[in-house]
Write a protein that binds this DNA or RNA. Sequence first.
DNA 1: AACATTACCGCAATCGTTTGCGGTGAATTA
DNA 2: TAATTCACCGCAAACGATTGCGGTAATGTT
Lengths: 327, 327
Amino acid sequence: MSEVTLKKLADMLNLSVSTVSRALKDHPDISAETRLKVKELALILDYEPNTYAINLRTNHSKEFGVIVPAIVSDFYQSFISSLEEEARLNGYSLIILQSGDDPLIELQNLKRCKQNRVSGIFISVTAKTNDVSSYLKLGEPPIPIVFFDKVPAYEACNKICVDDIHAATLAAEALILKKKKNILAVFGNDQLSITQKRLKAFDETFIKYNSEAAIAIYHASSTNEAFDVAMKGLDGADAVFCMSDEILIGVMKAIQTLGLKIPNQVGVIAISGGLIPTFYYPQITYIETSGFKLAKMAFSKMLACVAGSAYIQELKIESVMVEGGSL
Amino acid sequence: MSEVTLKKLADMLNLSVSTVSRALKDHPDISAETRLKVKELALILDYEPNTYAINLRTNHSKEFGVIVPAIVSDFYQSFISSLEEEARLNGYSLIILQSGDDPLIELQNLKRCKQNRVSGIFISVTAKTNDVSSYLKLGEPPIPIVFFDKVPAYEACNKICVDDIHAATLAAEALILKKKKNILAVFGNDQLSITQKRLKAFDETFIKYNSEAAIAIYHASSTNEAFDVAMKGLDGADAVFCMSDEILIGVMKAIQTLGLKIPNQVGVIAISGGLIPTFYYPQITYIETSGFKLAKMAFSKMLACVAGSAYIQELKIESVMVEGGSL
DNA sequence: AACATTACCGCAATCGTTTGCGGTGAATTA
DNA sequence: TAATTCACCGCAAACGATTGCGGTAATGTT
């Protein structure tokens, strides 16, 4: 009971392989009668074209590569989940690869995508990736690449990412609206461009609105560091801003440790993927930067690329505020 | 500037395709001199064998399919992350598909795996999947399948899952050891076999130790339901057991709402993947059921299957308790 | 010198599908 | 009746890599 192939169908019907092939594709050269016979048998025998043979002939597969620093992350999780759905509905499969934030592994993963002759690659680069020009020349003709989230700074390429400026501005505006006067603002590693952008926008918003709030800015590179700075900085603060989920978690632990009441004693707002804020009571008010929308945009951009569009785009997804009751 | 193929190399070296092929594989029929020349040119031109051609010939690819109800889940996240690492190190790629807990989509995903002629399939079935016998006959010869986490109840197949009995027993023992007398135990949907197993083991452990603790058992199918039952059931309880992360989150929200102090007023213990418990202070003591170990086991089992082993195994991974300070 | 051995390499088929081109018979037209 | 058109179908090459088999020249053996 080996595989059902065109040849097998052809032999059984006393037809040639080419006729069977054409019949299945409704080629006008084949008579309606023959078409029917062929399709009938194909259905009965559950014929399925050999993907490899088609791939070999067309020299590409309906697969996309996805390269992320790590799968364990709410953001990438939501991104991948959303992307998988889109892909599946469009007949594509996703090959997931993680770089472990290591540029070397990242490069290996790209090579592997090339070897697999994927139709396109979605990639969120490592913190240390500084030159993606070689990425863009991968393959002949070059494989379409859509950068998302962590995107290269300069190269002209398709980038889809969160509008950090908008998100931070929204958060600042919310704090201003609530007339918070003593704000603890915890940002991530100050070397990262994402931190710099969010910090700058946050700052400038307070200036723009002539706010008189006192803002204490701290940096934390991890949840634990965020906990530490919050333990020190929460004293006297009437609100705290967290740049990311990672930081929110640390800050919330500090708030719980100090026994502070939210939102009465201290208001909390964060920029977040949306999952973590729901773990607390009251739920944390946050500016949403989920991967879902990003994935949809990235996917449709990729489809355009695959279809031959050479139009290079840099998209920024604007966030919305989700009220939770913590501010 | 097109692709480098064996034919291209052969033409450039005035050799035949077969000689080039053999030279690259160190076939003894080819002289050392020729081998060297071929390899040199292959290196210069960055020759890479066409995966599709090889796949077509060998009729299988170095790809595994992974089907889960949903990617957005700490457990599957850790599982997939771990599996990806193993796969990559072994030269395999992973195709991720989610079923959305829909048996129909699950079946479509399996078909797609078959069409892609994956070397094997890892699958965690939907809650409604009750007959996997057709899964096991997929392909000719049948594609190796390793079931993990949510595994079918009866069929003889390779299953790798958490030892629910052991995990629940550990939790119960911890509660007994701490001499808790008034325990709120929140379990999941009582239709699920995982719930039944954990409940039974939990119960029996208290009986086994002749515990006099009063245990109030509740069921909750979601985080919100867990919140509701905890709001009612926490009154007077000196400890609470949460069967899963989902439930833990709801219970913790209730504890925060009621302003209860952990562990003084109420102790908390959960069965968890390990991520959520770290979000609180003090960190929640939990019985670990992470996907990492499961993935390693599942992968090595898969390798054995691919290598031709017909040995069917049902593995249960024992958990360990991770002390957090909440009990 | 005749034969056997060995080292080295190429031919051609194969995997399954697609597709340009050419061929056959019947129907239509002149 | 002869020429043209059309519907329908098959041949064979192509995609790129692998491999059994056979071939050629050089060396070794009697």
